[in-house]
Design a protein around this nucleic acid. Structure first.
Lengths: 161, 161
DNA sequence: GCAACTGTAACTATATTGGTTACAGACAAA
DNA sequence: TTTGTCTGTAACCAATATAGTTACAGTTGC
């Protein structure tokens, strides 16, 4: 469905900042952890800054850090900052107005899609970046990924690694 | 997020069939209501048939109809038939294994994304095609869409028409 | 046999995301 | 005040996914 990893990357980035406490992180350092290009990170940081989730400092010794405490940033905040649309989309082109189903299916679908969006938002609103860091900590001592994903999996992001 | 309208179109198609009662619908007729090409519809009908939601008949006087009663088809069935992935994706490329956050964020994100998917599925499991038809009926007598969307909106499917 | 359908391949068009290079401007420190 | 280190941003290209189109083989009712 979602072909984008924007939400996952954004959570990753803010988690790094919470992990780093209050020390500003350079986009290059973040990009290394996320395994992408610094510009991709900087683009995302701009969006997160617009939503007042991070603050950045230009110039030497600059970088970005959280704008609020980790327990005051929910995954819903992040979701709304980086994902422009709801979970589903309606038809690309509006259906046929002369068909009794076509002319009204949009209204009904919108109701359904709003219900879906609300359910997603309720889940995300109840998880903070602090929670993510907490869930992360028990892993850090133990886990090392066991297998190397095949080349195809690496690209597909099929939600397993 | 979701750049695809597959779910919306699939619901539209099955709603048409429920509306038509047990009469087989031609792909061309369905395409007219959805406002797209018959082949797009036939492709989708094949997926829906694989999931045993519709049955099709080739040849003259052929067409497709529901494989079960409308009250026995949930939006979750449809969702699973036409959308291959979950609501969100993880990183395109796996994060840096040598970073304590990077190596474990996938595990935590998977937990979160599973919670999200479950929430979506709970909503969709509780709505049947019969419900959709019921919600549709009150509209049919009254509503006629008031404004003509601008050209750009028609393409963007910004979830309003 | 013929006309009306579906199933499917092959191709193009369009949109979104992500990756890359390049550079202007901000800023700390010497 | 100069220099080196950052961010912000524009301008591309590449990769992927969806949708639209044409064409045609195969099935079926009449």
């Amino acid at each position: 469905m979602s072909t984008s990893s924007r939400f996952a990357v954004a959570v990753h980035v803010l988690t790094l900042m919470a992990w780093a406490d209050d020390e500003p992180l350079k986009s290059e350092h973040v990009a290394e952890s996320v395994n992408t290009n610094p510009v991709v990170i900087r683009r995302m940081l701009c969006e997160l800054a617009e939503s007042k989730l991070v603050v950045s400092q230009t110039g030497a010794m600059g970088g970005s850090k959280l704008a609020r405490q980790p327990e005051q940033i929910t995954l819903l905040d992040i979701y709304q900052a980086v994902e422009s649309r709801g979970v589903f989309s309606l038809h690309r082109h509006p259906p046929n107005r002369h068909c009794p189903v076509g002319v009204n299916i949009g209204t009904v679908l919108n109701q359904v899609l709003d219900e879906v969006d609300s359910a997603v938002e309720r889940v995300l609103a109840n998880i903070t970046i602090k929670d993510v860091v907490s869930r992360l900590k028990p892993c850090v001592s133990t886990a090392v990924s066991k297998r190397k994903p095949a080349a195809k999996e690496q690209v597909l992001s099929a939600r397993n690694y």
